[in-house]
């Protein structure tokens, strides 16, 4: 007897809910009028032309990429160092330190934004590219610490010992054996750090200044002041790249890069 499978129907409905916004935005981005409507009255590529040929949003995109890349690099390096300590050493206060390192995840981001805005103004550091990068590093380091610590806990330490037994000093053993083997874990932590930085609007909104406007901040203000389909076009571009990238990584190395199965 085959029963009607309510589970499948429910799952389909939820996936429609999850994915519809992206389809809609992609569709709307081809609109030919200046006022966004779905379904659009006519189709055109004019908004993509504005972005790709006339360079609309490109300066902000570059800023976002710079901030994302630099903050990911910083959070990855210090996150990996911290993970070695957390995964391999048992010392008094380890749990406390570990929860401090993960704390930025447990705190509403608005707090990081408002606290750092005040810190940067009071200390006269001011709002500039380095201060934006460091703010993003604080926000994203926990992702690296979390994924790399759990990857490192699963790493078979005798591999590193084998390398040292064969004459590699610790740095050589770590860089030539440990790091390459842990690369998938490090990669997924760093990727999530980058994406978090790239997509962040709240911290960036607090810390943005005329010289440092990230893409989400620009999109945010554009939504406020003009509701053109160009927003849909840049949104569709970045979303397609992000979701496409996720699916590409899934095709190459499976779901493990995104979901940990304890």
């Amino acid at each position: 007897m085959r029963r009607f499978n309510w589970g499948v129907l429910f799952a389909i409905l939820m996936y429609v809910f999850i994915l519809t916004p992206f389809v809609v935005i992609l569709y709307a981005s081809f609109s030919d009028s200046a006022l966004i409507t779905v379904p659009p009255k006519g189709l055109s590529l004019r908004w993509y032309r504005q972005i790709l040929l006339e360079g609309r949003y490109i300066p902000e995109l570059i800023t976002s990429l710079e901030v994302g890349a630099a903050s990911t690099l910083i959070s990855s390096v210090i996150g990996i160092l911290a993970s070695i300590a957390l995964a391999r050493y048992n010392f008094p206060g380890r749990d406390v330190i570990s929860s401090i390192l993960l704390a930025p995840l447990m705190v509403p981001v608005v707090l990081i934004g408002v606290a750092l805005l005040q810190f940067y103004s009071v200390t006269k550091i001011g709002l500039n590219l380095p201060s934006m990068i460091m703010a993003h590093a604080v926000m994203t380091a926990p992702y690296v610490v979390r994924t790399v610590t759990s990857t490192m806990k699963g790493f078979n330490e005798s591999l590193e010992e084998a390398a040292m037994n064969l004459g590699a000093n610790w740095i050589q053993a770590f860089t030539q054996v440990t790091l390459p083997i842990m690369m998938p874990g490090i990669f997924s932590g760093a990727m999530f750090a980058f994406i978090t930085s790239f997509g962040d609007s709240v911290v960036s909104l607090f810390l943005s200044s005329p010289s440092v406007v990230t893409l989400p901040v620009k999109v945010f203000t554009d939504i406020m002041w003009n509701f053109e389909p160009a927003i849909a076009a840049i949104s569709a571009l970045t979303s397609v790249l992000a979701i496409g990238g996720v699916l590409a990584i899934y095709a190459i190395q499976g779901a493990s890069a995104f979901v940990s199965k304890q």
Partner: peptide, 26 residues
Amino acid sequence: RDLLVVLLVAPLYTSIVVRVYAWMVI
């Protein structure tokens, strides 16, 4: 199943601003 899980995760890799904008359009 893994693909379904990844499809669930994938939207997290887009900016919240983008997702909220899409809902405004809807």
